[in-house]
């Protein structure tokens, strides 16, 4: 079945090679493309023109949720469900509730940060054309890849290939979908 390829894939040997290539691809106006690197290359997000991650929003929401859960748990158990008279103290007092509220806030903001990462990365993603490529093993080791997807409006099998080759991309090939 002659399907349309997923895109073009090029290998780079050095971090600075992929970094400068990414700057050019970004400036050329491509949108649906990606760099595959074995570690977070410093500054590559800016070189690719990526926006700041939204993970903190998830984390903040989780933290607020945790604090509400902590207050709610203690308020419900001590002041609503079973009012226990303890030496005439108020049923709900915020001071001794602080440790539990803080810990629940910490726990939920941490879990939400991770959940946010998973959602934003669309994990678990057990199938992806890049994972099927035999280059992934070296790209998680010491090589760097640039993948430009065929669905990009700027994509052209010849011009994109020329661009990647001009930027120093090695072994520029079509990537099977």
């Amino acid at each position: 079945m002659a399907e349309q390829p997923y895109g073009l894939i090029a290998t780079f040997d050095t971090a600075s090679g992929v970094y400068h290539a990414a700057e050019t691809v970004r400036d050329a106006g491509y949108k649906n493309w990606d760099c595959i690197t074995p570690y977070p290359v410093h500054g590559l997000d800016k070189a690719m023109g990526l926006k700041r991650s939204l993970v903190p929003v998830f984390s903040l929401a989780g933290g607020i949720g945790g604090v509400i859960a902590g207050v709610g748990l203690i308020y419900f158990t001590a002041a609503i469900d079973y009012k226990l008279i303890l030496a005439g103290r108020p049923f709900f007092s915020p001071i001794p509730a602080i440790p539990v509220i803080v810990e629940l806030g910490i726990a939920l903001s941490a879990f939400s940060a991770v959940a946010g990462m998973i959602v934003l990365c669309r994990f678990p993603m057990l199938y992806h054309p890049v994972l099927k490529s035999d280059r992934i093993i070296s790209a998680l080791d010491d090589k760097y890849l640039i993948v430009i997807e065929a669905c990009d409006p700027m994509f052209s099998p010849t011009r994109t290939k020329d661009l990647l080759e001009k930027l120093g991309g090695l072994d520029v090939k079509e990537l099977e979908a």
């Binding site: 990414a22 760099c35 997000d45 990526l50 984390s59 946010g116 990365c121 199938y127 890049v130 790209a139």
Partner: peptide
């Protein structure tokens, strides 16, 4: 399904 994508690294580093 980790694949070292720079788009994933941004979220990973932030998390």
């Amino acid at each position: 399904g980790w694949r070292g994508s720079a788009r994933h690294w941004v979220h990973h580093e932030m998390a």
